[in-house]
Structures are given as structure tokens and as C-alpha cells.
């Protein structure tokens, strides 16, 4: 996650707007924070977005109840399940695993949808309402507006992933026993260490979502129909997931935006396979930077006709 945030800061500093009369930096920072805070408020107080987060929060609850009902009484599943992630069977023994289960299930479609709605809407929505021309004549500054938009998308991604993970932990603790955590590699760590692993997984997936958020932002600068941008991003995500699952495409698989999402299970083993995680994070950062730059190049050079 911190990698993605660094990316943001870098991009802010490379903006080519060499304004002659630059006010003292403290005032600029405050003004930028004010704009950012307002954007966050508008995003998080919007009814549609609140409903999205609510729906995302309901999934872990449903999954928890469903798995509780299906769990064999007397604990301890016998033999690993062939389908699904390896940690499904661990749930009966430890509620902490509900967060991993929920995240891995929602990662396929629900979390990308939640991200796509806000990211695809970011510029296209403003263009569609016509508010983009007014923001630019305020003047918000094109680069500045784009940075604020992407920063908001990143916060939004974090909110979505953290809500899923937090609700799953609460539901898991309520429905299943909680104690020291037996990892996939068979080692057992303390509950505190287990929760720390949940935090790492959550942050890793925040970075994954922030990367597709940048793709959504870029698509959003090409249209004034937010629904088109949202749909385009979802098609991209699903197509990437499909291609990733076709063995014949194995050579391109590592370059797909969704390929490294499930690699978070490296965090559930000891020792942690950091190479895989680093590959994943590198992929997310490259996607974020590349698509932010595409968005920037497009947005700062095109006429606003909406």
C-alpha cells in the first residue's frame, strides 16, 4: 500500500505546472487538503456509495452464516477440500480465517465492482453532470484534480477492503472459536500474530484494488458516460481473470492485472514467500503508475466539451 501512496506523491511533484506565483507551500498544502477532504466527503456521503459499502459489508456476514450452517459439528475437517482456497477447512477451527475466505471470494467480483463504480465515475461522472467544466474554471487545475481524484479512489479501495476484512473478523469471532492461528504451512502462531497477518493481507489487497482503480481513472478520462467506464473496467477485470485461468496463456499470465491477487495466501505460510508478494506489489505499482500517466496525458491535453 505504501508503495502506491509513494507513487501518488511522486506524480504530484512531477506535474509540469510551473506556476509563476506559487503561494507559500503551507497554504498550498492546506488548500489541497481542503479539496481532498471535500472530495472524500462527497464520495463517502453519497448514498449510492454508502449502499455499495453496505453490500460489501453484508457478504462476509452471509458467508460466515453459510459456512457455519454447513460446517461439520465437532470441528476439525478431515482432509483438505479439493475446490476453493486451502484455508476453507481451517475456518471451523478458527474464526480468523473467515476474513481470508471473505476476501478471497469477494476479490473475484464484488470488490472490483465496488472499486469500478467510484473509479469509473471519477472523471466521467463529472463530465456527465457538466460539473467538470465548472471545477476546471474554478480553477481546480487539471493535474491537481486528477491527483485528488486518484487519492480518493485509493482511500475508497482501502475503505472497501478494510470493511470486508473487519466485518469478517467480527462475524468470524462471533460464530467460530478464536485462538492461536494454525497457518497453511502447519505452523501455529499466536492470535496477535494471526491478526497481523490479516492486516498484511488486507493492505496487500488494498494495493491490488488501487491498481485497478488507476485503470478505472484512466478509462474515465476517455468518456463522459460513467456507466461505460465502469462496465469497461469490469470487463477488463473479468477478461483478465478468464485469461489467467487458461493454461495456454501461461506466458502472459504474470502480466495480467489480476494475476497476483490471490498470491496473498503467501502471507498465510511460514516462512512468508516474499518474492511472490514483491512480484505482486511491483505489478500493482506498475499498473497504477502507467495508468495514472495515461489518465494524466489524456486529461491535460483534451478539450472539455461536456
Amino acid at each position: 500500500m505504501s508503495n502506491v501512496e509513494l507513487t501518488n506523491a511522486d506524480l504530484t511533484s512531477v506535474q509540469p505546472t510551473g506556476r509563476a506565483d506559487r503561494p507559500e507551500s503551507a497554504g498550498t498544502v492546506r488548500a489541497n487538503l481542503r479539496f481532498f477532504t471535500n472530495e472524500l466527503r462527497v464520495t463517502f456521503f453519497r448514498r449510492r456509495n454508502q449502499l455499495l459499502l453496505l453490500v460489501a459489508a453484508l457478504f462476509p456476514l452471509l458467508i460466515g452464516i453459510g459456512l457455519k450452517a454447513a460446517a461439520p459439528h465437532g470441528g476439525g475437517g478431515n482432509g483438505p477440500g479439493s475446490g476453493g482456497a486451502a484455508f476453507f477447512n481451517q475456518l471451523a477451527g478458527n474464526g480468523v480465517f473467515l476474513s481470508f475466505i471473505a476476501l478471497s471470494l469477494l476479490l473475484i467480483l464484488v470488490l472490483p465492482v465496488v472499486v469500478a463504480v467510484v473509479a469509473g465515475d471519477s472523471i466521467a461522472g463529472e463530465a456527465g453532470y457538466g460539473t467538470l467544466r465548472y471545477l476546471l474554471t474554478v480553477p481546480a487545475g487539471r493535474t491537481r484534480l486528477l491527483v485528488v481524484k486518484y487519492a480518493t479512489i485509493v482511500v475508497w479501495c482501502m475503505a472497501a477492503v478494510f470493511i470486508v476484512s473487519a466485518v469478517a473478523l467480527v462475524v468470524g469471532a462471533a460464530l467460530f472459536p478464536v485462538g492461536s492461528v494454525t497457518l497453511l504451512s502447519g505452523d501455529t502462531v499466536s492470535l496477535g500474530a494471526g491478526l497481523l497477518r490479516v492486516l498484511w493481507v488486507t493492505l496487500y489487497l488494498c494495493a491490488a484494488m488501487a491498481a485497478i482503480g488507476a485503470i478505472g481513472l484512466a478509462i474515465s478520462t476517455f468518456t463522459e458516460h460513467s456507466i461505460g467506464a465502469i462496465a469497461a473496467l469490469m470487463i477488463l477485470v473479468v477478461a483478465s481473470e478468464v485469461v489467467d485461468n487458461i493454461p495456454q496463456f501461461a506466458t502472459v499470465a504474470p502480466y495480467l492485472p489480476t494475476h497476483w491477487w490471490n498470491s496473498f495466501d503467501a502471507l498465510l505460510r511460514t516462512p512468508i514467500d516474499t518474492t511472490t508478494l514483491e512480484h505482486g506489489l511491483l505489478s500493482f505499482v506498475v499498473y497504477a503508475v502507467l495508468f495514472f500517466l495515461i489518465a494524466w496525458a489524456r486529461f491535460t491535453s483534451s478539450d472539455v466539451t461536456s
Partner: peptide, 10 residues
């Protein structure tokens, strides 16, 4: 109006 105002750095 508050939204447009917040976007104005000046």
C-alpha cells in the same frame, strides 16, 4: 457551492 469553493486554491 462549498464543493466548488473547496477546489479553489486561492
Amino acid at each position: 457551492l462549498a464543493r466548488y469553493d473547496s477546489a479553489d486554491a486561492s
